[in-house]
Design a protein around this nucleic acid. Structure first.
Length: 159
DNA sequence: GCCAACGTTGGC
DNA sequence: GCCAACGTTGGC
């Protein structure tokens, strides 16, 4: 019995990596590097599996919004940016033998015709319990309930 | 193990 | 740019 598909949300600042950048990447796929929070790392390492579906969220954007979806196409492996001294996310404690930080590969599924803004998410009753909407929520990798995922998808696909 | 200081996130 | 909310660090 295969494990049930899970749903996620990842945050990125479009100034550093936007969904357009993902669309322009080889095979529209990217390694999701730079996560430096243990709770988010644990999701990447332990729970994100091949075929899981992911909401793509632009933070620090105008407006902040879920702008599309992607798919987990490679499960967790060591985040090489952690032992790259020149990288902004360099961590002196990490090495290829002890990566500490993990990443997955994500492939673009769709860019929404209608970006679902944060205020729109807040205005949707059935999304009231989304982690993203919790006060002070800062996790850059979050779990999303199947019903929440489907609702965001439905709003984003409306022209 | 406590907790103050500090750094980061991210909406506004 | 402001600032609230968090996470991490390090002295004790």
């Amino acid at each position: 019995m295969p494990r049930a598909k899970r749903y996620w949300l990842v945050k990125t600042e479009p100034e550093s990596f936007s969904i357009r950048d993902l669309a322009a990447s080889p095979k529209q796929t990217t390694c999701w590097d730079g996560v430096r929070n243990y709770q988010a790392r644990n999701f990447l390492r332990d729970d994100m599996k091949l075929g899981d579906e992911v909401l793509f969220y632009h933070s620090n954007a105008n407006p902040p919004a879920v702008v599309g979806t992607c798919l987990v196409v490679r499960e967790a492996y060591g985040d090489h940016t952690a032992w790259d001294k020149k990288d902004h996310h360099y961590d002196p404690k990490a090495s290829p033998e002890n990566p500490i930080w993990q990443m997955v590969d994500l492939r673009l599924t769709e860019i929404f015709p209608h970006a679902v803004s944060l205020s729109e998410l807040r205005a949707t009753k059935s999304l009231a319990t989304m982690e993203l909407l919790r006060k002070g929520s800062r996790l850059s990798v979050q779990s999303v309930r199947p019903g929440e995922y489907k609702m965001v998808l439905a709003i984003g696909r409306k022209a």
